[in-house]
Design a protein around this nucleic acid. Structure first.
Lengths: 256, 256
DNA sequence: CTCTATTGTATCAATGTGATACAATATAAA
DNA sequence: TTTATATTGTATCACATTGATACAATAGAG
């Protein structure tokens, strides 16, 4: 998958505000920052309205009888088909004016979503989650009536975003950096097996800095959670790197 | 202040549900874990309803045109009179059933708060903050109609709590431990000047473990943020410890 | 003046890390 | 077959941090 590939999904418009208010909490929403790693870059999943040049984070609402965490999981499952995603609450975007983005208002109007425009622009306190996924394995769908484009975007090339989503992503990245130092979570971003250079490039993408190869390798091996398997060679005229995987039993004993 | 001293504050009952729904977000609340340090222990501020044996965290609601952060600050200011408190958002308690605590329901009924009982027991997503204060300087007040007792409680002696407030406090403590490792925040819990043994006892109270005296002192001094002032002696027949204060200019340069 | 309790500081070993060098390996080219 | 090249695996040195421990300095009590 290249970083510019997108999916176009036509969706019927049939929800209205009364229906939303009946089934969902009115003041609260959810936004998820989906991270994935491919092409040696950390990517974030962004959505776009056909009527806007701006992108936005995926999100949803909370059913009246549903936990907020459940709603976040449901939202992700609807989009990805997966129900076992690493998901972490990391922030609440609660500014009163955050939903009053003129670009969003404009886009909603153009889209002809009168029946739900009020709902979408009413003030919402957004509970923000970040999720770690292995994107090449994903077939993405959106259920919302207003989304027409889905794009994995490298975090250093983010386009203009609606609402306060730029800040939310910034906070998600900072939190991901903290968590990768304290927990064994790179496993959620990688394939089952991987080489040391691959793991290093993931860390470099997350922390946005170069790391010294030999020292990185030593640090990872000293964690004593990697299991060395065979070797994998890319055909180049050089030594083949070992393949590793995270040792499940040892990971459990460590942190998380 | 001893750990068992309490304040009794009679408050008139005059709010009703319609009024609340008109001015406040209906699905969201705020809870604050106020930490303070005295008598060599980390304390949390708890409130109690006269009609219940259970305690609860202070909290409040968010005005419709008010940021969530603003609401948290306002809530603390109403209670403490201070508007410059160190305050950190750290969690969202979002379980659907969290406000359905039979003990709370029972207590609200006994209190004769029919007009607002529904509001108080309706489902709320709670944005949780922790705050650091220097408690001996505080004169505490509560504006809510339902609170009759305020108590600083050592974190290792927490009484039965309403709702999910025990879990919220646990998460606040864990977050405080993480933050004290990464930021210079002990200053908010101490007086302007303090001795090294005092600082050490604060750390021991927060991390709930004994620390080696000489190593702790070395670590703190190596941070290069402490300014040594005079000495302070307690009259005991032993060497007097130095007085320190955090060097404001150096703290700014460091983290936070 | 000695004793005792506490604080300030030094020392040593173990550990972790940045910088650097060098050995091992897989292929291409000579 | 040999040599060159690119990359990975590993070792080494210097340095900083930290736990454990020892010892020196100080302020009274007796």
């Amino acid at each position: 998958m290249t970083t510019t590939e997108t999916f176009h999904i036509p969706i019927p418009v049939h929800v209205d505000e009364t229906m939303m208010k009946e089934h969902f909490l009115t003041d609260v929403s959810i936004n998820s920052v989906l991270f994935s790693y491919h092409d040696e870059k950390l990517h974030v999943l962004l959505l776009r309205l056909t009527t806007s040049d701006h992108f936005m984070l995926p999100g949803g609402f909370i059913k009246k009888e549903e936990d907020v965490d459940e709603a976040a999981i449901r939202n992700l499952e609807e989009m990805t088909g997966l129900d076992q995603i690493y998901l972490q609450q990391f922030y609440v975007a609660g500014n009163a004016g955050r939903t009053c983005d003129p670009n969003a208002l404009d886009a909603f109007k153009k889209f002809g979503l009168q029946k739900i425009e009020q709902w979408l622009t009413d003030r919402k306190v957004s509970v923000c989650y970040y999720a770690l996924v292995n994107s090449p394995e994903l077939q993405l769908k959106v259920n919302e009536a207003i989304i027409c484009e889905i794009k994995w975007t490298p975090v250093e090339e983010l386009p203009p975003l609606l609402f306060d989503h730029q800040m939310v992503i910034d906070k998600a990245i900072r939190r991901l950096q903290l968590d990768m130092d304290r927990k064994v979570i790179s496993t959620y971003l990688l394939n089952e097996t991987f080489t040391m250079p691959e793991l290093q490039k993931l860390y470099e993408a997350v922390y946005q800095e170069k790391l010294t190869r030999s020292n990185f390798q030593r640090r990872m091996l000293n964690l004593d959670i990697l299991e060395r398997l065979g070797k994998r060679h890319d055909g180049g005229s050089h030594r083949a790197p070992y393949l590793y995987r995270f040792n499940p039993s040892k990971i459990e004993m460590v942190l998380n």
